[in-house]
């Protein structure tokens, strides 16, 4: 280890910072061939001390940062079951799911037809209507009710496409929840859900 070139290269302190008497003691103690103390050993101590301090600092800072992430009870999100018989054709209900609104819309045949017809239209975030509902359940459209722009709750039936209209910045969605106009970048999000029976749905 004496005179290891790697450590020598990074030596910051010259021998000038030591008194003459100290140098002699250091020389005899570590049998160094150069004038002064053993720089490689000193650098090792510096690097080791800095590394230990950095590691200790990181382990202290991380809990301070991570405490802001969702707590265990927030992460342990319950799923929601909903009885669809309560929703008449053409109606929408809004329920609270994971602190956000969830739209469950019972679409009329005309609304479904309009959505399917627009599969061929120029879409910002192209997706066929058939991929946005469960097979054979075209009337049931289940969406997270947060505008993909900045998270406002769009109003049902608003806008020129008869889907949703966001009052905050004017994003307009069609009857499939696809973005058609305005600043929102993507379609309204379809959450994970499953039909437990013909009239019961489980979201999450």
């Amino acid at each position: 280890m004496v005179g290891s070139p790697v450590f020598l290269a990074g030596t910051p302190s010259g021998p000038g910072s030591f008194a003459k008497g100290d140098l002699k003691v250091a020389e005899s103690a570590v049998h160094s061939t150069t004038a002064g103390d053993d720089p490689s050993r000193r650098d090792f101590i510096h690097i080791a001390a800095l590394a230990a301090a950095a590691g200790a600092g990181a382990t202290i800072v991380w809990p301070l940062i991570d405490q802001m992430n969702p707590s265990a009870d927030t992460v342990a999100l319950a799923s929601v079951e909903y009885d669809l018989t309560k929703i008449e054709s053409g109606q929408q209900v809004t329920i609270n799911w994971r602190g956000k609104p969830l739209f469950i819309r019972n679409r009329t045949q005309a609304q479904i037809d309009a959505a399917v017809r627009d599969d061929a239209a120029v879409l910002k975030d192209p997706q066929a209507d058939a991929l946005r509902h469960k097979e054979g359940k075209a009337q049931w459209l289940i969406l997270v009710g947060s505008c993909t722009h900045l998270g406002c709750v769009p109003t049902v039936g608003g806008g020129e496409y008869g889907g949703w209209f966001c009052p905050c910045h004017g994003s307009t969605y069609d009857t499939s929840g696809r973005i058609r106009k305005g600043p929102a970048p993507t379609n309204l999000v379809v959450p994970d859900y499953a039909f437990l029976s013909d009239t019961k749905v489980k979201i999450g």
Binding site: N69, S71, T74, G99, H149, L150, G151, C152
Partner: peptide, 26 residues
């Protein structure tokens, strides 16, 4: 909601930062 969602506009890391900032999913 609107102002914190501005953070979500940052590509890739925006989502996790938003969740971290809000301390939840909303």
């Amino acid at each position: 909601v609107v102002i914190t969602n501005i953070i979500g506009a940052i590509p890739v890391v925006g989502g996790p930062i938003l969740t971290w900032l809000q301390g939840g999913f909303a």
